[in-house]
Amino acid sequence: MPIYSKKIIQHFKRPKNVGKIKNPNGTGEAGNLLCGDLMKLYLKIGKNKKNEEFIKDIKFETLGCAVAVANTSLLTTLVKGKTIKEALEIKKEDLIEKLGKPLPPFKIHCSILAVDALKEAIYDYYKRSGKKIPPELEIEHQRITRIKNQAEGRYKEFRKLEEEVLK
């Protein structure tokens, strides 16, 4: 019995939308410095017939565990073709539910990584195109940055402690 669900294994073995986009108009990065994993998302945002901004193309790269690969692959398939507004509504719980079989607690952050990288990519798109950033997204961006800084701080502290111990 593999430790993960069939669905996770499928997405892990054959992930969708892997790679880079040539001239993305939004990129996002999220990392978990504890597990050392890194997620990169590339977006091509276009306008649909109703003149709404939508995700024309999305690609990702990850130095991550199997669950991170599967989650991001699933996320990209869910948001491709969707409007930005719809894309931002997807939560980590939606991914976890769709992938079946509850994740062990220490693997929840792998789903957060995917969702956060998407938020960051959309944030970047807004920024690049000089658009007004929705307040909720600004809050999220600050949260993600804060976590990143905290993790970095904690990590540095850890290394410092370790160096002292090892002196």
Partner: peptide, 14 residues
């Protein structure tokens, strides 16, 4: 270089 150990373990297990 450039890979994450856990994903290697999972794929080898498969």
């Amino acid at each position: 270089e450039g890979v994450e150990g856990e994903s290697v373990v999972i794929e080898l297990d498969l």
